[in-house]
Design a protein around this nucleic acid. Structure first.
Lengths: 150, 150
DNA sequence: CACAACGGTTGCAACATGCTACCAACAAAG
DNA sequence: CTTTGTTGGTAGCATGTTGCAACCGTTGTG
């Protein structure tokens, strides 16, 4: 086969997550959904993606339980795509990716969109990995317990 | 053109991050690097990826400053691939993805690999998004400041 | 020196991506 | 109610990318 390799049966949660999202477009769709996009046309204009691609990605995300297709909120006969709780749980992933990008791909004065705390208008604190008792962990402070392949 | 669309000039940091990583294989390579893999063959066996794919992905990651190619630590003439500081900064992204996967893609008793605190052997605390003053933020508590497109 | 392991490269065939054109259902204006 | 524009797609095509398998030089090993 030459289809893209699937990871949905991996015992590694990272692999399954990656598989469920599907591709980068899907992740940017989720980003836009966090940012308030709901309609097909909104996603299309914001992303500049071809409509057939957007169609398949939205379908995949709905099938994967990340998005949900609901009747439009303005009473029209169209439909809208909104995040499910499972989709909303991707928030830390998107924020972490955003912060990584901010730190490494923009020059000091280079403008970029910014995610801020709505209540105070302040940028967010950097996402951290913490131990059960609250210590800040670096990669070296952790280790992976592999499950025996049986 | 039919090349995959690039996002490296987007003003959105999420898009640039996504573009820099390249594809899912690359992310899994980074995951394995956090898990201690260093050699070409280690990545290849762990991922089961075709060698030509692995070759190009490693090259892309090195070019993007995520990995670095260094002389092998065992004194042999081979080379190894290790994370740069920029690559290590992806740690929260991987952990967040892992936790999302754990929560949504495994049955209660289904076995999966697990990332634990090395010192105490305990699973990690869930990654959270916090405001500057430490409040836990949900997606609705935040808003994106878009930069004018000029 | 022989032989295996390592780290690739090359050449396909199949699939995915992206573009453009097309189209049906809906909405708004007249 | 008819015209016109918007919304949300589908269909077809050219090209790019993926994955497999075969091959190959270099390095380590007995």
């Amino acid at each position: 086969m030459v289809t893209r390799t699937r990871f949905d049966d991996s015992e590694c949660p990272v692999a399954r997550s990656v598989d469920a999202i599907g591709d980068w477009w899907s992740l940017l769709i989720v980003r836009d959904a966090f940012d308030g996009s709901r309609r097909f046309g909104e996603f299309q204009r914001s992303l500049g993606v071809a409509k057939n691609i957007l169609t398949t990605r939205l379908r995949t995300l709905v099938a994967g339980g990340v998005l949900e297709s609901v009747p439009a909120s303005d009473g029209s006969a169209y439909r809208e795509y909104v995040l499910t709780p499972k989709g909303e749980a991707l928030f830390p992933v998107i924020v972490a990716l955003r912060q990584w990008g901010e730190q490494h791909f923009f020059g000091p004065g280079e403008p970029h969109s910014e995610l801020v705390d709505r209540r105070q208008g302040q940028p967010l604190r950097a996402v951290e990995v913490l131990s059960a008792d609250g210590r800040r962990l670096n990669p070296d402070d952790t280790t992976v317990h592999k499950v025996p392949t049986r």
